[in-house]
């Protein structure tokens, strides 16, 4: 895997028509693209129809970093190039400032492109965003529609009453009754 043979470029087109040119090794971080490239069924430009340009930029950033890690560890023969802690800190920094809708798009993209590492990062971030929230806060945060009938909601509320004791929204409703 010397530098000279590694120059093959791949072009990716996002859903809004922007074309990105990346090295093949970077594209191959995504399993879906790797399969495509290996079976040689990729056209000149690979359309990625469910990912918008800003998200694809972020994904490519991640892939570039992965390639950097693996190449540096293979050349210097030092697999502990980045310790577990550093990786964690890097992941946190990568996900810093990502809002909920971008995060959802990132998750869809990493799931579609089959990038396990990015998917894990996104899932962890999502978990940290949801942790400790009450139902109404989760609905507000992610535009989730409450499609329970009032009776169903009451039943679920009762079953989870222990968890919602300090839910301000719940208190308001039960006191207004």
């Amino acid at each position: 895997m010397s530098e000279s043979t590694e120059k093959k470029m791949v072009r990716l087109r996002s859903s809004d028509g922007e074309v990105f040119e990346v090295e093949e090794s970077v594209a191959k971080v995504a399993k879906t693209l790797q399969d495509m490239l290996e079976e040689d069924c990729a056209d000149a430009v690979i359309p990625i129809t469910c990912v918008r340009a800003p998200i694809l930029t972020k994904v490519i950033d991640y892939c570039k970093d992965q390639v950097m890690i693996s190449s540096s560890s293979s050349t210097t023969n030092n697999p502990n190039e980045r310790t577990e802690q550093e990786r964690k800190a890097w992941g946190q920094k990568f996900m810093e400032g990502v809002d909920s809708s971008t995060l959802c798009e990132l998750l869809v993209a990493s799931n579609f492109l089959n990038i396990e590492g990015l998917l894990n990062l996104g899932v962890d971030k999502m978990v940290s965003m949801i942790q400790g929230k009450y139902p109404q806060e989760i609905r507000d945060m992610f535009n989730v529609v409450n499609d329970f009938t009032p009776e169903e909601e009451e039943e679920i509320r009762n079953q989870n009453a222990w968890a919602f004791e300090r839910d301000p929204y719940y208190k308001k409703r039960s006191s207004s009754k």
């Binding site: 009450y134 139902p135 679920i156 989870n160």
Partner: peptide, 20 residues
């Protein structure tokens, strides 16, 4: 996967958010 990583009380909230 996301729901599976939540703790008990948060899973209770998340699954009370919508029927899906």
């Amino acid at each position: 996967r996301i729901l599976g990583l939540l703790d008990g009380p948060t899973l209770a909230s998340a699954t009370s958010a919508s029927s899906y």
